[in-house]
Design a protein around this nucleic acid. Structure first.
Length: 125
DNA sequence: CGATTGACGTACG
DNA sequence: TCGTACGCCAATC
């Protein structure tokens, strides 16, 4: 094939490619009306120290299909830190409220109660 | 190519 | 208990 595969690996590390896919997969598993944190997902994937990468992966989630409920992913204190990255800074809040989650000033109410931990819900039992 | 940033979290004082 | 420092790793300047 004369057609050279000028493939520019968007992910230099093939291992990381999986990482992003896993992040999306787990995020989609978040039940409606529940939330989780970046660290929880990272920890579930075995990269607890790379919680930042989870958020970075979320950046691509918008153009990833099926769409990922990124609004259900907040930081460890239940703060909507990523709201600014949505269509509208209030979109994330409204999406959560739409699912019955009460949000007060970018803070998820009863966060601990609504917290969906993949390493627990998807537990090894 | 080097330095800085970023949707976070943990460790340390 | 609160504030600061560091680590992660990719993307951007």
């Amino acid at each position: 094939m004369s057609k050279t595969l000028n493939l520019k690996p968007q992910t230099p590390n093939p291992n990381l490619d999986s990482f992003f896919a896993q992040v999306y997969a787990v995020a989609r598993l978040i039940p409606r009306g529940r939330v989780t944190s970046y660290g929880a997902i990272a920890k579930y994937l075995g990269t607890a120290r790379s919680a930042r990468m989870v958020g970075w992966a979320m950046n691509g989630s918008f153009h990833t299909r099926p769409k990922v409920p990124a609004h259900r992913v907040v930081n460890r204190i239940g703060l909507l830190t990523g709201k600014h990255h949505f269509s509208s800074p209030t979109k994330m809040k409204e999406l959560l409220q739409r699912e019955g989650i009460k949000v007060k000033k970018d803070q998820v109410k009863d966060f601990k109660k609504l917290f969906w931990d993949p390493s627990v819900e998807l537990s090894i039992d």
